[in-house]
């Protein structure tokens, strides 16, 4: 998940292995990182509580009167609240995707401009060859922070977030008498009719949940694999914000400049001039 905001942050050199230094740049901004982990937490809670709502698995409490305990009501309530937070974050992210330019101003979104990567045969070939171990190099796209596979999957992810939010609102509205869920469900009534009633809406909700589970598993594997294969420090990056530069993939002996960053102020290393630090996550 890349940011389009370019932040002038000091570059740093880390030693991954003895004699194998990497130039790292700040690729994940503070909001991106926080949002990533908040989303992660929300999705875990939403899946667990969603499975409970679909088929309650917690043991029942018969010692108390029904009027005193609200297990299902609370699970449902917090499920819906978490869903609204996730939807809000999704909408912010989609707005950023569509309308925030590379320089951080409003306009045609920087990430939207990267869409051609999805339609480039060469990009697909390079990326699939890399993932299928037929090529050692991580493909580098000058016009996109994402590879074509990534771009497609993340687009699907946000589309699925919208679908699960819409179906979730339609399912939540009948429990309420007024409020944002009720009037937005009224607006989305044609969707409910098109799907064929609440039972089908629920089925769609369930299938999209499985998409998220599959996405999470694949996402974690791909990120870890990428990080290990290319040494681009992506896993570290989503915590610290710093990841290895892309054109710096292969291990090579450290230059004097890199081992002594103080010397850089006088004379820039040729590596850093070749590719100015660009925002973007890559894995």
């Amino acid at each position: 998940m890349a940011t389009s905001t370019v932040r002038a942050r000091p570059k740093a050199v880390v030693l991954q292995k003895p004699g194998r230094p990497r130039m790292v740049v700040y690729v994940f901004g503070r909001y991106i990182r926080i949002a990533h982990w908040v989303r992660n937490g929300l999705l875990i809670w939403l899946v667990l509580s969603g499975i409970y709502i679909g088929n309650p698995f917690l043991a029942r409490n018969l010692a108390s009167e029904a009027s005193d305990i609200f297990i299902m009501a609370q699970v449902r309530g917090w499920h819906v609240i978490a869903g609204w937070i996730l939807l809000a974050m999704t909408l912010v992210r989609i707005f950023q995707f569509l309308f925030i330019r590379q320089d951080g101003k409003l306009g045609l979104g920087a990430e939207l401009r990267m869409a051609p990567v999805m339609f480039s045969w060469r990009a697909w070939r390079d990326q699939l060859a890399f993932y299928l171990l037929m090529k050692r190099d991580h493909p580098h796209f000058t016009y996109s922070n994402y590879g074509p596979l990534q771009y497609l999957v993340y687009t699907m992810l946000y589309a699925s977030l919208l679908v699960i939010s819409v179906t979730g609102i339609i399912l939540a509205a009948p429990y309420l008498s007024s409020g944002i869920a009720v009037w937005s469900a009224d607006i989305m009534r044609p969707i409910e009719v098109w799907m064929g009633g609440l039972a089908n809406v629920r089925a769609v909700h369930r299938f999209v949940m499985w998409f998220f589970i599959l996405f999470t598993v694949a996402h974690i594997y791909m990120a870890v694999w990428n990080s290990m294969r290319t040494g681009n420090l992506l896993i570290e990056g989503i915590v610290s914000g710093f990841a290895a530069k892309d054109d710096d993939v292969h291990a090579r002996p450290a230059t004097d400049d890199e081992l002594e960053p103080a010397a850089k102020t006088a004379k820039k290393s040729p590596t850093s001039e070749k590719q100015p630090p660009k925002a973007g996550g890559k894995h």
Partner: peptide, 30 residues
Amino acid sequence: AFGRPLWAYRDRIHDKCERRSHFDAGQFVE
């Protein structure tokens, strides 16, 4: 939206159910 009179089909079975409190309490027939 499904062509049913609102006076009869405005609410779900769930909303007018006499066992609803047990649903909210998480007390289910297993």
